[in-house]
Design a protein around this nucleic acid. Structure first.
Lengths: 341, 341
DNA sequence: CCGCGCACTTGGATCGATCAATGCGGGCCA
DNA sequence: TGGCCCGCATTGATCGATCCAAGTGCGCGG
């Protein structure tokens, strides 16, 4: 704590001299402490402490051909939507990765230029050890490209339709989450529960939807006429709810996102219906919006902290012993129950 | 530990051999292209292209003693609040920094351990070139500590009460934003405009509050009895609004955050008052919540994209020529007008 | 007393880009 | 023709940690 910069930081050789041992021994003290006798180790650690030594990252990276950096393409929440899972996820990730000795490197790729360019540069420059890929939507070329490049990566999201995929992945069981929400409503006596989701080409959307049909059919209830597929915007949710209310008279809505659920709430407000009393509404993502509105929006909450833990675990396996083939991990969301459902 | 490549990545020497020039020339082609004759440069670039060469980051970092990495302590939005500026800010930052050849390195420091430990490690290990500090609240030791360490950093936020501070900073003029909001209400005929803000020891809160008093006094209107200071939670805003409505009968509220504004909206709802019609409400941060609720919440929007640009500019000045002393930059927010005000 | 293994030491090489100094050929001017 | 500068090539050294191979001193069991 008494060192002033910008004097040259101490090197491993400085520590060795101070502790009266060799460079090799200091290196071992740091990387293979169990090779040293207890008293020697203590002496070296003391010298490290006194000098405020910390191994130079660049030198270490050069020699070991690894950076202990994980690349993550940062995708912010879209304006005008309620979905903000990234924020919570990134935080959990940074914390967990930090515990494992890794840091998160953010990068962006411009909209116009080649989307893979960013990955390529970082990879070739050995700037990162691995990537975390977050959007595995249909036709997303990232995963295929990374695999072909033999770049280590873990994806948050299943390789939906890519049967050649053999990379580790972690995902949240959206169907189970929606099933949970639907069952919660069924247990409260609802029979006519509507679904508002995304277009058919969204695998995530179809997965979530299947949780609704599963729960409904499990109670021998029909789902015909009770589903709507639309864009992920508030106004789309608003319109879809209006149509469903007119044509199918549902007593509750389960939505693929909090954004859509907000649209439903607006429709209820238009018609003087009280959410949670006249009509129940459940969203998906447990966004800040769900938490601060009144009445509070019941919503499916993804276990993002666990996702981060599993992703880091997978990364460690991937980077330490390449033989370990970690399959996918599927986590189950919970339901944050509030007033609307 | 190692990135599995089909083949070892090409080195600068490989490029030199292929182009029939020396290592130094290739290095110049990359770092000082104007030193080369046009045809030589073209030949080298061709070789780079053919081999898919990208300079090894670790080697470059070691030699140049710089990593082109900027450290940022990632702070997620608090659960149960509406404030989510970080998300938007980080994205802008990543994009802008990327354009300048820098990447953003996220790190976290555990709540219990020494808050400065994270900075220290990264700095000593020459893992980052500089830091971006985002919370410059009263008594925050980071800035002082970093300065004492002579660590290059730029802060998002003024050094409020630290007169010894000489580091570059970028901030948003909260007072101007609130002035803007208040004036907007005044222009619409409001006279009794209340303020709900944070406790007195929050410099940011007091700054924003001053915008309200400035605008009110500018029209010779009294502010006595119209202000409330509380915690930044929805329920605090709710309570404060109730008290103010009872005791001062304001026709409009300006709040230090969207979170507080949400509380106000809940109170209006309790009393059957229509936001924007009976009583106007303006928040601060233009969060997702402000955007998706109905009626939409008018809110002060921070120009986070510009903040990012200015911060990167300051960083570049800081890292290129240490002599350049960039003072602070103060940016003016805008008002996102919606139905509540 | 020998041999073995533990706990180190020693010196050198290595990773790959950059720095610094020198070499070299050709053009320009006196 | 000689001297000089300019553009570019060449080459060894350097950054600091790690890897590697060989060696030393010492204690202990056989």
């Amino acid at each position: 704590m008494t060192i002033r910069y910008p004097v040259a930081p101490p090197t491993l050789a400085d520590v060795a001299e101070r502790a009266g041992v060799s460079r090799q021994t200091v290196s071992n003290a740091i990387n293979n402490p169990d090779l040293l006798r207890a008293d020697t180790l203590a002496r070296v650690q003391e010298a490290i402490e006194e000098l405020g030594y910390s191994p130079n990252r660049a030198a270490r990276n050069l020699r070991t051909r690894s950076s202990h950096l994980i690349g993550l393409k940062f995708q912010p929440a879209q304006e005008g939507t309620a979905n903000a899972a990234m924020d919570r996820f990134v935080h959990s990730l940074v914390e967990t990765a930090g515990g494992a000795g890794y840091h998160i490197l953010l990068f962006a790729v411009g909209e116009d230029e080649d989307h893979l360019r960013g990955y390529d540069d970082l990879l070739r420059a050995t700037a990162v050890d691995a990537f975390i890929v977050t959007d595995t939507y249909l036709g997303n070329p990232q995963a295929a490209w990374l695999r072909q490049r033999r770049a280590p990566f873990v994806s948050f999201g299943r390789p939906w339709d890519d049967d050649a995929a053999d990379h580790p992945w972690v995902d949240v069981d959206g169907a189970a989450g929606v099933d949970l929400a639907t069952t919660h409503l069924l247990d409260r006596g609802h029979q006519r529960i509507a679904w508002i989701g995304w277009h058919k080409d969204s695998r995530i959307g179809e997965d979530r939807r299947s949780g609704w049909t599963r729960a409904m059919h499990g109670r021998n209830l029909s789902t015909t006429g009770l589903a709507s597929r639309t864009e992920d915007t508030v106004s789309s949710g608003h319109d879809a709810a209006a149509v469903l209310l007119d044509e199918a008279q549902p007593s509750a809505f389960v939505c693929a996102s909090d954004t859509l659920a907000m649209g439903v709430l607006h429709t209820l407000r238009d018609r003087g219906l009280t959410p949670g009393h006249d009509v129940s509404v459940i969203g998906f993502d447990d966004s800040q919006v769900a938490q601060v509105i009144n009445p509070g929006l019941t919503s499916v909450r993804q276990p993002l902290e666990e996702v981060a833990v599993e992703i880091v675990r997978a990364l460690e396996g991937l980077l330490s012993t390449p033989a370990v083939v970690s399959p996918g991990v599927l986590l189950t969301p919970t339901l944050a129950v509030r007033e609307t459902g």
